[in-house]
Structure formats: C-alpha cells, structure tokens
Design a binder for these strands. Structure first.
Lengths: 215, 215, 215, 215
DNA sequence: GATGAATGAGTGTTCATTCAT
DNA sequence: TATGAATGAACACTCATTCAT
C-alpha cells in the first residue's frame, strides 16, 4: 500500500515474500504436521526459494511457530470483531456459540494446528506472541455474558467462565478435529451442511441448557 | 499357560516379541505421530531388533495400523465390560459418561492415536479390524439408554443416539486431546485430579441437562 | 528309481527337494542374475524352505554355481545326442548350426546364465563340473566335420575348428542374448517364428559360405 | 573456457560434478550391473557425495538410465564420425566391420551395458534419448553400402540391411560379451592382440563372403 | 531333515540446513 | 535479497545367513 506496485520496492517485496512463504507453510503444516511437512515441498510451492525460508524464518521450527502465531492471531481478530453487548444474555451466548462453531468450520487449518501443537505437548505455543493475553480475553468475554445473564435472571448462578469456554470449545473443536474418524466410523460427513445444521442446533441447545436457570 | 490356544509346538517367543514391539510402538506413535516416530528408536526400546519389526509388521505404516487397531480394540473391550442395564436411565447415562471420561483420562495414548489418524485423514482407519462394527455397537448402546429413559419418563423424546454419543465424546475427548494447549493458555492442568473433579461433574451435568425432560 | 514312490524314502525326498530348489533357482538366477535374485523369493517359490537351500547348497553363490553347472550339463547332453556322422559335411554342418540355434532359442535361460557369468567375469565357471572337457569336446566335433568336408572337397582348407565354433556360437547366441534390445531398437521380435525363419536361413548360409571351397 | 555454451553465470561445478558421477557410475554399472552396483561405492569413488547423486539423478535407476544413454550416445557419435563414401562397397563394408569390431573391443563397458539391459529385458532402454532414431540410422548406413555394392556388381542382390547389421553385430558383440567364458572354457584371451588379429580377419571374411556375388 | 524366529551389516533414499556467489 | 550447489546425518527398509528346536 505504501509502495506502488510498479516500483521495485525492496521492503514491500520482502513482506510479500514472507507472507507468501507463510501462506504455503500454513497449508503444509496444517495438512501434515511439523514432522510430516517438508521444507523442500514448501519451498517449491512458494514463489521464492528454500534459501529464503531460512533467511526469513531461520529454521523449520521457527516457521512452524510463525504459522501457529498467525493462526492464533486469526481467531483473536475474529473474536474481537464480535459485538453482542446489546443482546440479551441468552441470545448473546447463542450468537457466541454459533460464531465459534462457524469459525472452527471455516478454519479447519486452525483446528489442525492446535491438534499438532497438542501432539508436540504445546512445545511451541509458549513463544507465540499474544498467547499470554488469551486467557484473560476469553475469560472476560465469557464473564460478561454470564454476569448479564445472571442479572437478567435467565442464567443460573455459579457458572465458571473458563468452564463454559471449555464446554463450548469442546463441542465446536471436536466436530472439526475428529471429522475424518467420525466419517470413517459413522459415515457422517461433518463438512456437509445438511449434517452441520442439526448438529449446530444441538450444540447451541446443549450449551444453553447448561446455563439456564432451572425452574 | 505359555502354550495358549491349544496350538502345540508354536513358539511362545514369537507372540512375546510381537507384543513387545507393539507395546513400544504404541508409545512412540502416540507420542510423536506416524511421521515423527522413528523405527530405529522403536527398535532400540524393544527387546528385539529393527529387523524383527519388518519381519512381523512389514512396514512402518503397517506397524502404525496395528497400533491403531490395538487402541480401538482396547476401547471396545472396555465398553463391552460395562453393564448398566439394571440402573435407571439417568444413572446409567451418568455412569456411561463417567466411564467414558475415565477411559479417555486413563488412555491418553488412545486419544493421541485418534488425533494422529485425523491428521492423516483417517487414511489407516479403514483397514482396522473391527472398525466397521463400531458404529452399530455405539449407536445400540446409546439407543438402549435413551429407550429406557423415555420409557421411565426421565428423558425427553427425540434424542438422536449418534448425536448423544458425539456430544459425550466431544466433551471427554477434548479434555485429553487439548490438554497441553489448555495448560499453556489457561494454566489449567487437565491431568490434575483437583482440576478433573469439577470438570467431570460439569460434563456429566451438561449431558444430563441435554437429555432431561424439561418440565 | 531306487526308492519306490509310495515309501517315505529319505534319500529320495532329499533328491526331490534338491531338484525342486534347483529348478526354482534356475529360473530366478536366469531372470535376475546373481545379485538381483533373492534367496527369500527362491525359497518362497520352492516346496521347501530357506533353511533347506542352505542345508543343500551352503550359500547363494554355491546355489548359483549349481544352476550354472546344470545349464552346461544341459547343452552337453543335447550336443551328445546329435549324430550327423552319416551326412555329407555340408549337411552335417547345416544340421549342427540349426540344432545349435534351436537349442539357444529353446533355452534362453542358458543364454542368460552365460551372460550373467560373463558379467561376473566367469568367476564361478571354473568350479563347474565338466567344464574342463568342453573345449576338447567342442573342438573335436568341429574338427570331425571339417575333416570330412575337406576330404569330400566341399570345404576349403585351413579352417580353424575353434574359430568355426565361435562364429556359429556368435550368430546363435546373440539372437537370444540381445533379444530385448533388438526388439526395442529395431522393433524385431526375435522370439517370433516368422522373424526366426529367415534369420535362421541367413545364419546357416553365412556359416556355409565361410567354409565353402571358393571356385 | 570454463564458461561454455555462452551461458553466463552458470556454475561450472555442476556440470563437472554431474560428469564425475556419471563417469564413476558408468564403470560400476558396467562392471556389476544395476543390482550389483552400490550407490555407496559409486559415491565413494566420486569427488562428491551420495547426496549429490540423488540431487542430480534422483534414483539409482535414473542414474543407470543416464549411463545407458551416455553409452548409446558414444557409439552413435563414433558411427557418425566414419566416412567411407568414397570407397568401393567391398572396402567400405570391410572398413565398417573393422571399425565396429574396434569400437566393441575399445568399449567393453558399452557391451556390458547392453548385456545388463538385456538381462533387465530392455526395461530402461525405451526412455533413453535418441534410441528411437537408432533403427533408421543403422539401416540407412547399411543400405547405402548395399546399394553401392549392388551397383558396382560386387554384392549379390536381395541383401537385407537389418539382417546384415545383426550379422556384423553378432560377430563383434559376442567377441567382447563372452570374453570371460571363452577364456575359461577355451583358454583363449579375446583381449590379446595376437588372438584378436586372426579372429578379426575371419569376421571380416565371413561378412564379405555372405554378401559377395557368387560366380 | 525340517521349521519359524532371529540377526547385523548394509542399501537406496531423504532430511533440514549451509555455502559460494 | 536471492540462487543453485552442496552436505552429513538420519531414514525406512532389505539382504544373506544362522540359531534354537
């Protein structure tokens, strides 16, 4: 944007090269994991070369970390864009669950990166920029909904915000993470809109049922 | 005792060697995945040699498949051992959820193998013996509880057995599968009994809330 | 012959086992050479086991030598069976060339073994039983025809018997040995009777032309 | 001189490395065949490493194919360098036979590669560059001599050019290909000039006798 | 005579990474 | 910034051969 396209602006090309590598690496790491992805293959699918990967990222692991970082940046931004403050708590929670599920469905590569990271015992996650704030951010947003719901009288008391987050996350994550084994074992294609719709409703109902004040 | 199955003259060493390899491989594949595990390393931790791995399993992938098979055999047997027929449906479902969660907690290597398999798009799961029956088995056991609950008047109607299974599985699986990222991000150790206890109660309550007949 | 078939005669079984191994090994070595053939594969195609190969032959190389020996025994016997003494020299030579060509065409495995042996610089041929006599045998049979032809006045004088043998052998051997490269390069299938017939006539004519007394 | 072909900036080392590997591989494959040659051994005798073999050739088979290609390029060039157009047909044919024999004698590695290829049923020959033209090239050069000989009245009519080529090739090829078995069986060293000379004369005479117009 | 299990050295191949230019 | 060539350690896999029974 700062550099016109026609001019051979060095710094712009650098960013573009970096972004190009990152984009390719994201696909490869998500698809095959850290051990399964090949630097050669990533380089080949890139507009630049293997040497540039090392120039910009230093090592395979660092490149992996950068991809992980980008993935968490993606969900952070998506979450930041949501504004359910004006809705009643029940509706806000419903909207939150739906958006969360939609994000997972739309970003299977994020789900796969989180799976990969768990296979590596979250070895690389600590170094990811912005990860330290994620806890407070998530808890705060859950707490806000809970507080409103309790104030409105629609939520029961004693709901733990982190517990609620994990519950929602479990239901959304699993649907994408275990897509293939579910399909093989149960013949259920979790990417099929006709399969998603009722499951989506069920997930929302499950979450709402767990917070509702029981008469 | 050493000559099982009435097969006389069959050397016991073969079975022992095979089992030893499988045991070591299970640990390695669960820990590092198919691409990350090393045949050399597996062989070293074995009482036998690399050559024997190929003698008994033919290839790395076949060994992986055998480990996968063993893992699914494990959960199948665990499920077969449970008998909640005499309990009221609510209690049976509670017991089922608790046992399912306990199995996942006690067998993180099973969870990791399922994760690995999803990373490989369930490429090897189709060839696993007994996997074809898993669908009917799981659905049947859920349906039995649902039928009883509806008959007893404690469950609402219209519950889909597979939906119920996926809901339970999501909540139990995620707790183990995402153990490391959860710990890193939220400082919550999902292997700590003090953390498990309330989460376990919450999961049970969530499931029960979703099937209960609402007044 | 000494042991009736119905009796479990040890020594007879031994011979049969040995012969069976040799038969399979002959095919494998001829097809793939010493380095290319696999003991495991030979054992599999055998009615007995890998252990027996070592029991009877000691090593892969010894087995190869035994196959080589069998091949040379085969051509020796075929040559011993021919009797052209009563024919005029020209006819005897023609018959000899034709029979030689036919033998090569009928026994490509012999040709291949000789090729293999030349690739190994005839390393194993020295130890082959009966190979020492081959020189005199071949020279004698050529000399007999030459002598008769000269006496009859149909052959020129000064023909070297070994030279004549090599000439015949060249023309017959090449047709089988280089069958595949000829087919690929010239599109000529040397195993096709329609291709063989004129080539056979040409070879005979070439040999006869080279010994005939020129007017 | 180091920057050949006018390709600026092209490192000379690459070509040198490639050629070095090819040279060593040619010796090894000719000596031991595809299965018998060892990549490790080839690498050791090279100025570079095993890794470079795969960098430039991709696989053992591809390296073998490259060697085969180089061998056929060698004989093609040698044949292209000959010019017997001004000689009478008889002399031209004599010169052709002598040159062909000389080439085989001087390039036993070519003969061995052709043997190897026939052992592999010419599996790799199809992919060799330039092999498709060999047929027409060879036939054309034989036909030219035949036509001249017939026109001059020194050759009989009805000579098939491919037949003539195969006859010449048989006699020349065998002398090198079966060198070792001949030496072992007949005590005749086909690499010894004293042995070659009369055999060479005999081969020439055999070929000439087969094309001469018989009075 | 015969069998299945076992072995160590090797065999082709691939990896992430670095160097020279 | 960028490129092609180079590297050594590791990698999955295979071989001929032998042992215990």
């Amino acid at each position: 944007m700062t550099e016109a396209d026609g001019r051979p602006g060095r710094s712009h090309d650098a960013d573009a090269t970096r972004a190009d590598i990152l984009r390719v690496a994201a696909t490869e790491f998500a698809a095959k994991g850290l051990a399964g992805a090949r630097i050669d293959e990533i380089a080949e699918k890139t507009r630049s070369s293997k040497r540039m990967i090392y120039y910009y990222f230093g090592s395979k692991e660092e490149l992996y970390r950068a991809v992980l970082e980008q993935n968490y940046a993606g969900i952070r931004e998506a979450e930041a864009d949501r504004h359910f403050e004006d809705l009643p708590a029940i509706d806000a929670l419903r909207a939150h669950v739906e958006h969360t599920l939609d994000y997972h469905l739309a970003h299977p590569e994020f789900v796969r990166m989180v799976m990969n990271e768990n296979i590596h015992q979250a070895q690389h996650l600590g170094g990811v920029e912005g990860i330290r704030d994620r806890n407070s951010r998530v808890v705060a947003s859950m707490q806000a909904i809970i507080d409103k719901g309790v104030a409105e009288g629609s939520f029961r008391s004693g709901i733990n915000p982190l517990e609620l987050h994990l519950q929602i996350s479990s239901l959304c994550f699993y649907m994408v993470s275990n897509r293939y084994t579910i399909n093989t074992i149960f013949g259920l294609n979790m990417a099929d809109p006709a399969v998603i719709a009722p499951r989506r409703a069920a997930i929302v109902e499950t979450v709402l049922a767990s917070v509702r004040r029981t008469a």
